[in-house]
Design a protein around this nucleic acid. Structure first.
Lengths: 197, 197
DNA sequence: TTCAGAAGTGATAGTGACTGTCAATTGAGA
DNA sequence: TCTCAATTGACAGTCACTATCACTTCTGAA
């Protein structure tokens, strides 16, 4: 599992984690906007320059996920016969059982979902993936990835997933992720007609 | 039509327009990020302080639309019998015929759709409206506006509309807006099932 | 093990968006 | 016309982020 990686890469990861950890601690204490990069750097015992080398922006510190779930590969390599919803469900649940059900790092989640500039970064991240999804949908349906229909479907999917995440957070992660995911996909697949009638 | 407004309000509007106009001119010449607020203020013959008083952010200068289309009122007051898609279509087309088919100010559109920080502001604007839409959908369907299904549907709607706008821009506004709107709504109403199968 | 080149680090000096404050000016309404 | 309230521009400051550069630390080949 653990790739044989150079000392350099190890140090880098360790430092990034230290910076993120220090940052989250300070955010918890004073709030996201009240904490400066300089303070974070001092708390993590690196220079401000290094913080910027690791993370492009202050928001990036929150966005960074050392154990990010990989969705692209499983979806891209999915069998034509298996419905999209099932692939997604399986991938997420598989990841879940592997990583001790902490898909969402609650510590980061607060800022991901509540700080405006971080919200924007999250949304951007979601929509940045839509062209990839569009290519996949296009291949499956025999359309062009540049079709309005394909693009709208993918944009709607991203918007729906984003809304589901926000809902989950707003409800304090009460509902199990699997159930939430199913209801979300079901709504998007045949619920928009009812809702937007 | 023209409300009897004080001299103060008139001046304010005139100044805002002057600032936006100056800004767009400078953006066209040097690009969005290369132009400073100070330069914009100088070109518009106001102080930098005033620019910030009119527009909260640099992105806001682009976002500002003196002739913004009103969607909330027509949708909120729509008859239960009339389908959502039709209300939206009618409102937009009505606005269109009234304002000499310039729904989209091409001059601003370039920056709205192409500058990352402005894109973020546009997306935020879209999703900020979803609770309003959710309240409307909830009222029509007899659900709670806090239901996952309602929220997901509204988020998906916002994402789909955003994607449609981007598509329209990417295709250089070739397709008539009415047709684009119809296809977009049709896709969201019964197209997601096909696309995401 | 050694050593040259590559890559990472921290210090430093910016730039520019944005905030807060305050005295001077200018409309609004009596 | 006069008073009060809102608007303005000037000024000083904060902070995210960029660019540069000498110095240190790893890497991979000999």
């Amino acid at each position: 599992m653990r790739e044989r990686q150079g000392l350099r890469e190890q140090k880098r990861r360790a430092a990034m984690r230290r910076v993120q950890d220090a940052a989250l601690g300070l955010f918890d204490e004073h709030g996201f906007e009240a904490v400066t990069i300089e303070q974070i750097a001092a708390a993590a015992e690196v220079s401000p320059s290094s913080v910027y080398r690791y993370f492009a922006t202050k928001e990036g510190i929150v966005l960074y996920d050392p154990n990010e779930i990989a969705l692209e590969a499983p979806i891209a390599s999915a069998d034509e016969g298996v419905p999209f919803a099932e692939v997604l469900h399986r991938t997420v649940m598989g990841f879940l059982s592997e990583h001790g059900d902490e898909v969402v790092d609650r510590r980061r989640a607060k800022y991901l979902m509540e700080v405006p500039s971080v919200q924007d970064a999250v949304a951007r991240r979601f929509f940045t993936e839509t062209p990839t999804l569009a290519a996949f949908v296009a291949a499956r349906t025999g359309r062009s990835p540049d079709d309005l229909e394909v693009r709208v479907a993918c944009g709607a999917f991203a918007g729906g997933m984003l809304a589901a995440m926000r809902h989950w957070h707003a409800e304090d992660y009460a509902e199990p992720l699997g159930s939430l995911l199913d209801r979300t996909l079901a709504t998007m697949q045949h619920g928009l007609e009812v809702a937007l009638r």
